[in-house]
Amino acid sequence: MDIAGNPSSPLYGVGAEFASAVDLVRVAKELRAAGYESFDVFSPFPIHGMDKAVQSRRSPLGRIVFIGGLTGFLAAVALQYIPSAVIYPLIVHGKPFGFFAIPAYFPILFETTVLFSAFTAFIGLLMMIGLPRFNHPLFNWDRFKGVSADGFFAVIESRDPKFSKDETGRFLESLGGSNVTVIHED
């Protein structure tokens, strides 16, 4: 097995390279079946059906964005109501602020809701995937650079209860993995 990173630093995991998206889905299923939990599969593009293969739950991002959107909506209500009705009441179209004037406030309610939702989606995404993070043990592995071109990788982390350096490496090899590598933290 190859070694990536400084061998005297703690172990991060064991990784292997696979030939195709089809292989990677199969590997993910096998790893699950073998009882591994802390592993991840890496690919240059999102693979259809992978979520099912690794049995991950649906991303909760949608609910978070809903809360963000609701915040935006309420912010726009406050932003328009307080000046228009309290601080600086204006009579526009012959109407003071009131129920019949409400449609004229819709565009800003809508835009602000979308604005807050989009920012929540973006910031929520970064928080969920733990980015920005410019240093990661995987970047010690030279071959891993291929992941953004046409490489498919599976990495089992050492924190997995079933992890054992040699056995896990052999298991990855038996699944058809090449370039099985032990990855260290630094």
């Binding site: 992978m50 991950s56 980015l131």
Partner: peptide, 26 residues
């Protein structure tokens, strides 16, 4: 930003992309 392309990232990424598309449409 240190993107690694793992499924743990892709699954949230795809959801975020879908949400942004859904928000951009209206």
């Amino acid at each position: 930003l240190g993107w690694r392309g793992g499924n743990r990232q892709w699954r949230h990424y795809e959801m975020a992309y879908l949400l942004l598309a859904g928000l951009s449409t209206p």
